[in-house]
Structures are given as structure tokens and as C-alpha cells.
Write a protein that binds this DNA or RNA. Sequence first.
DNA 1: CGACTGAGTCGGTGG
DNA 2: GACTCAGTCG
Length: 820
Amino acid sequence: MSDYLNELNPEQREAVLHVTGPLMIIAGAGSGKTKVLTTRIAHLMASGVDSFRILALTFTNKAAKEMKERVEKILGNNESRNLYIGTFHSVFARILRAEASKVGYPTSFTIYDTDDAKSVLKTVINELHLDDKIYKPSTVYGRISSAKNALVTAEDYANDYALQQEDARANRPAISQIYTAYAKRCFKNGAMDFDDLLLQFYLILKNHPDALHKYQHKFNYIMIDEYQDTNPAQYEIIKLLGAAHENICVVGDDAQSIYGFRGATIENILLFRKDYDDVKLVKLEQNYRSTKQILQVANEVIGNNKGQIEKQLWTENGEGEKIKLVRTMTDNDEGKFIADSIQEQKLRNHYFNKEFAILYRTNAQSRAFEEALRRMNLPYTIFGGISFYQRKEIKDYIAYLRVIVNSQDEEALKRIINYPIRGIGKTSLDKLILVANEQNISFWEVLTKASSFGFRAGTLEAIEQFVTMIKSFTSMLKNNNAYDVAFHVGKQTGLVKELFNDKSTEGVQRFENVQELLNSIKEWVDDKQNRAQIDEDGVVMQEEQAPFDAENSQPKSDVDFSENSLQDAIPNRPLREDVLLSAYLQQISLLTDSDQKDESADTIKMMTIHAAKGLEFSCVFAVGLEEMLFPNAMSINSREELEEERRLFYVVITRAKQRLWITYANTRYKFGQVVQNEPSRFINELPEDAIDKSFAGGGFRNQTGGPSASDRMRGWGGQGTATTGQKTYYTEPKKQPEQPGYLPINPSPNKPIVHQPSADFVASDTTDLKAGQRVEHQKFGFGEVLKMEGAAHNPIATIKFELNGEKKIMLNYAKLRIIS
DNA sequence: CGACTGAGTCGGTGG
DNA sequence: GACTCAGTCG
């Protein structure tokens, strides 16, 4: 049991053995930080600390999951399930569910993601008759988010003279007004945005001594991962929670602080020692990840930043290869170069696909790599960008579920009120919203009382049907699990069928996505039900491992799980609260793309540098090292921001275990236009002796039929010092021939196949149209009426066209010729 | 009412 | 280049 200590170096052991009182661990990249954290938790438990009393907060679900698994492995028992391990947001969301009433929120409050929040802002800005060109939702969102992260409520904001002045100078004097209206609207909707999860929890702790007392004594030991990324809200919460016992252990690396834009302040880690008396400080400086060459480059680069905590990373690993600096003509050439290099490395050094990562500054850069890898038939996974839950069809489906759980959720209601089409269009919607505002009641209330607000008969009928349907769903909530409700909803609303009937390429994809959503809900429920009953009080943070695996579209098996020997499945167990729809919704809103995709698959990984923090790869391509891109144009105007960009560069370098390429292009496309960029200033900070400026390719011929590698001009530039001169990796700008079976291009699958109307085409009177009749449509051609629906004054026919598949046709507008 | 189209916009990183 | 939005037409 105690051999876990033998696997640690002296500093690591020192950190693990410090049990009582504040502890700060400065953990350099690759220094075994997670190992120390997990061993420390295991040690606490082995020393008799009750596992229910330990709280560990991380920034990603993945980190939380890994910690939990590793503790379990060390201890070899089930005790770790009692730990409170999770992300700040998910742990706080869970606690808020229990405490929401203290801030006037319903227990099953909705969590708004960024898109939802911006949508609310847009509504609010319009209602205040403000110009949404000046008050762009994303800009305003950023401002409000910063305020919340600094624990400034709407009221505080309105009373803060300095903030008003700032906004006035920025020509946005109404921000405060918008913030107030936004907060009010979210509250009315029973919804919290991401920042509210911190702010509201803070307010509860601050204003409710009983709650503070409760959680202070629940969490006797607190551990914080990535402390350098905490913002003031997180900082204050930690401080409050830890004040009673001061058993706070923070782990971080000031050199890897890269989240300033979401309010993280590096001061939190720099000043930790001032916050508590007798802070024990441990530095982990031995790196177990990278080669000496890589580490030398990293140290050199970060040395250009001022005001760091003194430390020097070192390693016993081998010297390794020099870092390869690559310059290409265009962003597409950059992609081709990397695809070639990967292919070559695989052949020469027998790497797996999963040992490569392409790491970029912005998500938009992924496309060139995607195309290049596809051309070479190299499998890849992109992390980030639009996640599964942001897809329209998924958001629509989930909007139904949200409305059922929380009918006050106006955002969700607006999404589904006319989806599938039920004849409540924009005009009706505007009126509904208007009434809600005039009467100062919720959108839902207007719907339920629609008859008193003078809607047209057809619209009223549609509204009433909708309300009845939603109510019938709501009545299912208590006695059915999330999956059963969701399945029923898909069926009853016609949502699934509608998608099924759409046979376009995208339509099929959408249908599959919805299938996938349902599968994932099913697995989530099964997973929960399989877990043994545990102590009520300890309803553990089970960071739901993503039930959904976007890449393989295969349901994940429970193999993982059995290893944890958690299951003593009780058949027909009564419905537990944690399989309810509300619990499901709560957690999915906090999942990220990385949580949903399988990182262990043998594919090349592509993601932003931000998303790559905490990960490591044998071979790393740090790409797009160009002025305006990296460092980003937005960040070159202040020393602080520039230093954060440099830390980002440091982070990407230290992701590499064995080989590192740093690439940049002379020109690249931005918004469809070619722009020319200077090489990044960071390139000049690389130590000459660790950099290989000669070419790293060599003899490899690609298989795509384009110019072979050796035909290309290629090489290294930038410094102009290389004796070989400024060669560049370059391909002729001519298009490569399209390959069959590849990039399946169907430019507009939704475009109807055009039908030439018959010469004698005359629109018929369709008032008595019935299912089974044959008709001709001016554009869609011949077809058969499958069914009739809609109100009498606005009949809708579903017609199956020979050329264009099933379509819903509104008879008031379409010209149809009845044939039989 | 809603599908289509052309013009305008997108500043970057994420829970 | 991809997406959103306002205006048009069936």
C-alpha cells in the first residue's frame, strides 16, 4: 500500500506527504503533476481522511476523470468514488442544483451555453432599441462575462462609476443597461450562463452563512489543478471554502497561464504565498516528457517573459533531434508539408497516427490540414470547433427536453415553437413575445393563455396543440428516465420522422446525429442505473464519461467500467433521481468537444494549443508561426497579452516528447482573401543551436499524383542565415485532379431537381385535395399526396415527389395541378 | 407562411 | 470561405 511513495522523486514525495495546511506546487510542464495530485489524494485517504471530505477541482472533465481513475488504481478500492472530483463548473452546478432556491432559481435551472447567451443578448438589445451593430452580442457577452468573472453583478456594474466611464469612452454607454436586462431575462428564463455558475455560487456562500458553513465542513481538503488559470470568482470561492481549515493545495505553472481572456489572473498563483501564513512551496522541475533539445528551446523561449516564478526545467531524457523550422509558400503548402512529413515519419520511425498532433492558434486553421491529410488518406480527429451539442438538429431536440424540464426557458421555446413546422411563424412569434413583455409574464404563460390574446383561429389551434403536447411530456418526467422521455418526445413531435424523410446528404447526417443523441442518452441512463447505490450524502461527482463517441458512432462498451468493478446492477431498481432528464441536461451543457471524442483512437489529432494543454504527443507540429496570427493581432498591443501569447508558444513546444516541427507560411487565406504575413517574432527567440533549418523531408513521394516532394522547392527561410538560402516548400498553384471517392462533393443537395412544367400546366383548385391523389408541382414535378394536415384555412399537404422526395407543401401558396 | 437568394459579416482562445 | 440575415416570391 505504501509503495506508491517509492515511485516519486524527492520533491514529488515532499508534496504528497504534506497533509495539513496550505501547499503550493509549482509544476513545470511534464513534471508529473497529475501523478503528484492523485498520489496525494490517495495518501490522504490512506492516512485516514474521509474520502467524502476531499474536493478536487479541475478545468476539464478529462482531467477529472483521469484523476479519479488514477486514485482508484493506486488504492485498489472503490473509495475514490466518494471523492468530489470535477470541473469548477460541474461541481458548482451540482451544488447549485441543491441550493438554487437561495438565489431564487428553480432546482432544474437551465445552463445556457455561449450561443444561448448571445441569443438572449440579441433579444434584449433589440428590445432596448439599441443598435446591434454597436452592441454586437459577442462583444457585449465578453464584457458581461468579464464582469461576472470579476464578481461584478449587474447592480454592482450599474453603480460603478469607473466602469460607466470606460463604456462611455468605448462608445458603448448602454452596456450596464443591457447587463441588467440580460440578467433579468436569464433569471426569468430560469437559466444560468457559464459565468453564473461561479457568480451565483459565490453569492450563496457570501450571503448565506449556513451554506458557507455547510460546505466549509463538507470539504476539509481542497485541491486545485491548473491554479494559474483561475479567475477572481474561482479564487474567492476557493478562499471562502478553505477559510475554515486552510487545507488548500494548489498546483500550477505560471509559465502555462493561457486563459487571461476568460478572466484568469496570473496573480492568483504569484500571490498565493501572501494569502496564507506558512505556505509550503514545492517545485517540480524535473521533466519526464521531452528531449533535452525540446526543453532547451522551451526554456529559452519562456525566458523572454518577465516576472515569473524562478524555476529551471531539466530532464534526464536523451538529447533528441533538433527542432525543425519549416517555411512554406502558402497555408495549403503547410498542410501538404505536414501530411508528407507524417507519412514519412510513419514509414521511417514506425509511429502510429495517434502519436502526431497538429496544434494551431485558431480553429480556422484546421481546414488546410484536413484537406492535406485526406488527400494522403491519413485518418485524423479534429477537436474543437462546433461540438456535437451545438449542431442545429441536436440543439433543436435538446430544446424540447429543456422546455419540458423548465418551461420558463424562452430561448428553448423559441427554437421549437415552430419546429417541426406547425404554422406558428415569425408574425405569431413576434406577437407572442410582445404580449409576454407587455403583460410581464413568461413566454410559456402567454402560450398557455393564448386564447385571451386574440390569435387567429388556426394559429391558436396550433398553439394549443403545442401546449397540450408539452404538458403531456412534462407529466412523464417524474416516473420516466431521461431516455424514455427523450425517445417519446422524438416520436410524438415527429422530429425523428421528419429528419428520416430528408434524404439529402445533410439530412441523412442529421438523422444519424439524432440517433446518436438518443443512443448517448440511453447509455448515460444505463450507466447510472448500473452503479451501485451509494451513500445519499455522497452522490458522487461521476464525471459522466462521454456516452457518445462521435468518431465511431459506435456505442461505447462498458468494458472500461467493469475494470472499476463498480457494478452490482440491481434489476428493476426504482427510478433514481440521477437518471432523470433534468440531471442529464445539467451535465451535457458542460461537456466539451474533447469529452466527447475518443482521444485514444489511432488518428492524428488536431486542435488549438489551448485545447492541447495537459496533453503530450511524440511528434508535434506547431503551425502558423506568423505575426498577426501567432502572436495574434489582438494581443500585440500590451506586454501582458504578448507574454500570454509567448506562454502559449511555450505550451505548444512542451507538448512534444520526441520531435517538434515549427512551421509558418508566407501567405494564407483569411476570409477568402490572401494575406501575407511576416514570420512570427517568436521564431527569432529560438536558440540557433537547437534548430534545424535544413530540410526535414527527403525522398518521399506523395501518392496523390501531384508534384512529388522532390520536385518541390522546399527548405527553410526566415532568418536568412542559412547558407542554402531561402528555399521554400512550394507546389504549383494548379489544382490537383479530384480523386474519386474522396471529398464527396454535392454542391447543393437541397436544390430540387428542376422540373419543366407540362405545357398545359394550370393550377387546380386544391381545397378538396386528399391523400392518394396524384399532382404535378410547378417546380418539384409529379408526386402523390401522402397526407393532409394543418388548419382548414392553411392546409399543408405532404407529397412524395418522384424526383425530389417527400416535401410539405402549403396549399395557399403552391401551384399544384391535380392529375387524378 | 416559409424557401430561396444575394449581400454583408466574421476580430481568438473556452467552460 | 462559411455563415447569417433581410428581402422577395411562390
